[in-house]
């Protein structure tokens, strides 16, 4: 441990004191072990590690036991149904929820939600939330000294269309400082919450922007050991999504896990 970190920890025990160099060393050691395991025939990992000490908050919050296998039963083979009536017409435009225009780089994010077999996830709920252009969340527990934007809340909802596409308009979020360690910064990201056609496909994740210099330093992004899997979280700039004199565009497709039940047409919604 570098001497500087020890001093910080002693003098301010309630302040995140580990250095980025320490964190980066932990991450690199794990990634090296993963790569060596792969070379010896260990399976490729698709998701983040649950037991991942570099993300300090995970230490007391991850299950220590292996997940227990259960054959999914009826209810678990279906997902809740959402409809147009659940969502306001303006909820997919995060730039029009207040009296004025939010500050920042206006962007459109578009992508397709499919299952593990490539089938579109139709008419299903997509929820997003994010920091503003200054990297500040509206949340009361975010008190870091960056400005709140009175014209930006940073919450959106939409349904995928009949071919699994979602699209929303927002402003590009800024990087966000957090207290995992000293001088810790999260790469700019948008949180996504997704449902599939069955409960087993439920996922919450984060979309990142291409070329972010903070990727290598971020314990959350790097909790995914596999470099190919990490790249799946990074949107691509898409000029076909950009709009003339209005917004730049990003494309981010989402693949849910494979379904467990024999696939049938999605249920009709009798309430609609």
């Amino acid at each position: 441990m570098p001497a500087g970190a020890a001093v910080l920890r002693t003098t301010a025990p309630d302040v995140a004191a580990d250095t980025q160099a320490q964190l980066s060393a932990e991450i690199e050691a794990a990634h090296r072990a993963y790569a060596e395991g792969l070379a010896q025939g260990a399976p490729r990992e698709h998701g983040p590690r649950r037991d991942w000490p570099p993300y300090r908050s995970s230490i007391l919050r991850h299950p220590t036991k292996d997940l227990h296998h259960a054959d999914p039963e009826t209810i678990e083979l279906f997902a809740p149904v959402f409809g147009e009536r659940d969502i306001g017409a303006l909820e997919s435009d995060l730039t029009v929820q207040h009296g004025g225009e939010p500050i920042g780089e206006r962007i459109v994010v578009r992508g397709r939600v499919v299952d593990g077999e490539g089938r579109p996830v139709r008419r299903q709920l997509v929820e997003v939330w994010q920091a503003n252009a200054a990297g500040r969340y509206v949340h009361k527990r975010d008190q870091h000294p960056a400005p709140v934007d009175p014209n930006f809340t940073g919450v959106g909802r939409m349904l995928t269309d009949d071919d699994g596409w979602y699209q929303f308009q927002t402003i590009k979020p800024g990087p966000y400082p957090w207290k995992n360690h000293f001088n810790a910064w999260r790469p700019a990201h948008i949180h996504f919450s997704l449902f599939g056609t069955e409960l087993t496909q439920r996922v919450v994740t984060q979309m990142y922007f291409p070329g972010d210099p903070l990727f290598a330093l971020d314990p959350i992004y790097q909790s995914i050991q596999d470099p190919r899997a990490r790249e799946l979280l990074v949107a691509t700039y898409d000029h076909d999504v950009s709009q003339h004199e209005w917004a730049t565009g990003y494309r981010w497709d989402i693949v849910l896990s494979g379904s467990h039940r024999t696939w049938t047409e999605p249920n009709d919604d009798p309430a609609e």
Binding site: P48, H191, L232
Partner: peptide, 14 residues
């Protein structure tokens, strides 16, 4: 599949 990421600390307003 697209990997999961933590819901984080600030989902409470969303």
């Amino acid at each position: 599949p697209t990997p999961a990421q933590t819901v984080g600390p600030f989902f409470g307003y969303a």
